[in-house]
Structure formats: structure tokens, C-alpha cells
Amino acid sequence: MSLTFTLDGKTIPFVDGETIIQAAGKAGVFIPHLCYHPEFKPHGSCKLCTVKVNGRHTASCTMRAMPGMVVESDTEEINAERRALTQMLFVEGNHFCPSCEKSGNCQLQATAYHLGMMSPHYDHFFPNRPVDATHPDVLLDFNRCILCSLCVRASRDVDGKNVFALSGRGIKTHLIVNAKSGKLGDTNFALADKAAQVCPVGVILKKRQGFAVPIGERKYDKAPISEAVTEGK
């Protein structure tokens, strides 16, 4: 007998060991997320994928699906919470979409559109975060980091290089580069690394290439994130 749970009233099948977001993705149901990526172990930090399971809040990327669960996701209450989390991400960093190369391909921007975020709502922090342009092929723009740790996981688990880490605690948490100088140019990071491909925002960018894809042909110009992201990717 197949295992199922309900998500916003819809019956979702799953196999033992799958998380809620994995099962939802396979069933074609989008749950907003930023730090989750199907190729990596869940991190459970961004909280965008928070759902209510039997009335209690939990991260759907870390909670295993169980038979008979009643899961709520696309509700006004939960989406308002997701929107507030997204607004906080926008004000904590310096996210100037108009001149960002990632605009139109950015998961944070697309998620904000999906959630109907019309303004940042909170006061901007405007942190001072100089870019790291020391690497010959890759630019690091820390202004846009949302601390999803995907580059950390990719560099450690796939590339075997441990180039990145999150340092500090609480609001002072920030992305660092594992080099004595702290500079990417002093690591063995390469453009072909998995870690160079996974950033959901515009932190890790190929150098000397900007706005090569015209407006109208970028990923989220073609379809909103709820349709563009399948199986949780």
C-alpha cells in the first residue's frame, strides 16, 4: 500500500525517508525555498519552506513525510511569514536588483515576486561589504549573500575543496573564504566547481560577463518560480 499525506488538501504520495518538500516537488507542488537544493543535504536555515504539520510550524526540507500528515503550505498566514522572512533578507544585505547581473535569474528575486512582496518593509541595514575580485575568473559579491550555505556544502561535499564557510553568530553570521588572506584568489577554487554553479542569488558570478541574456529570455522571465522550479530544484 502506498504512503501518502495531504498538502493543502491534495494527496501526496511518498516513499519512506523522503522529506515533505521532496515528495511535494515530485508531485509538482511548489513550496518556496532558498537554502534547499535536491542535490545536497538539507540545511533548514532559511525557513522559507516552513509549513504547518498537524498545526505546528516546521521546515519542510528537514521534516520527513509521514503517513496521514496534514500539511498546510499555501495559506495566507504562512505566505505572510515567508514574505516577512524574504523582506528581512532583502534589508540585511544590499540587493540592488536593477543593476544585478543575476536579476531575472535570481531565486530570491523570483521568490519575492511569487510571495507578492511589494516593498522591503523594514529599514535597510546597508552593510558595507566590499566585493572580492581577486580570483581571475570569478567575482564574489558578498552584498547579496543570504547565507544559504549551498556554496559551502557544494565545495565541501562535491568539490572536496572546503573553499567557503559561514563564520560568526546570529546577525553577524557571514560568508568567508578559507584562505589566510581571506581572498578567493588565494584558493584553488575554479569556475568549473560545483560551488560556482549553485548560488541562488548573485554572489558567485563569472567574471567579465554581464547581462548577456536579454530581458525577456532570463529564467524567470519565461515562467514564475512556482513553475520554473520542478522537483524542488
Partner: peptide, 14 residues
């Protein structure tokens, strides 16, 4: 100043 050059045409038009 301090921004990568390829961003500039899109940024300064603002």
C-alpha cells in the same frame, strides 16, 4: 567605485 566594470552600463543609467 569598487563595482565590477560589466555592471556599469546597467547601473549608471539609473
Amino acid at each position: 567605485q569598487g563595482r565590477p566594470y560589466w555592471e556599469v552600463p546597467v547601473m549608471v543609467q539609473r
